[in-house]
């Protein structure tokens, strides 16, 4: 369930009667998650006799979440609450990009390249980054991790790009 709803522009769209937009949208998102789970577990076997099937518990929890989400959303209608907080794009974007880059590059390029590059990509997430400093620290961290994980901790992982080794 990696579908993260992004609610940034919703603020202006929401009608007048929503008094607590934060709760309202939050509750609706939970309802959506619950509906998704109900759909995803719909092919599983339910109760047979008095014993649980594979799908019983997931559906039970999904229904519970559905009700709770609806209740949270209802609170957003009935009670005054905070507006939806502002989202920034820079941090989430570059931190996620660094993570995804690392995941994609670790197998083909090895730890040294992917860790160093991921460090620099993540560093883009802040406008206060000073590049000389970041490159030095990134290099030190990469060396540290390259020693720590495979040698000290004995966890096997590729070190250098595949094409260089062969």
């Amino acid at each position: 369930m990696s579908d993260t709803p992004s609610e940034a522009p919703v603020k202006s769209i929401l009608p007048e009667w929503v008094r607590g937009p934060q709760d309202f949208v939050g509750g609706l998102a939970m309802v959506a998650v619950a509906l998704f789970a109900l759909w995803a577990s719909s092919d599983l076997q339910g109760m047979h006799g008095f014993s649980f099937g594979a799908g019983t518990a997931p559906r039970m929890f999904a229904v519970l979440l559905l009700l709770l989400g609806a209740a949270v959303a209802l609170m957003g209608v009935l009670k005054d609450g905070p507006a939806i907080a502002a989202y920034s794009w820079r941090g989430p974007l570059f931190v996620s990009a660094a993570i995804v880059f690392f995941a994609v590059s670790i197998r083909p390029f090895g730890l040294v390249v992917s860790a160093f590059a991921a460090f620099l990509i993540a560093a883009l997430g802040s406008h206060e980054t000073k590049w000389v400093e970041a490159i030095i620290v990134g290099a030190c961290l990469t060396i540290g991790c390259a020693l720590l994980f495979p040698y000290v901790l004995g966890l096997p992982m590729p070190m250098f790009p595949r094409f260089l080794i062969q």
Binding site: V95, A98, I99, V100, F102, A103, V104, I106, R107, L111, A115, A118, F119, L120, A122, A123, G125, S126, E128, T129, K130, E133, A134, V137, G138, L141, T142, C145, F149, L153, L155, P156, M157
Partner: peptide
């Protein structure tokens, strides 16, 4: 500004090493 990229990279390596699975990192 120096701490956060370090934590990101360290975490990413850490998760990868659990199952050697890039999907876990994503």
């Amino acid at each position: 500004r120096l701490m956060f990229p370090s934590i990101v990279v360290f975490c990413a390596i850490g998760i990868y090493s659990v199952n050697n699975a890039p999907v876990d990192v994503v």
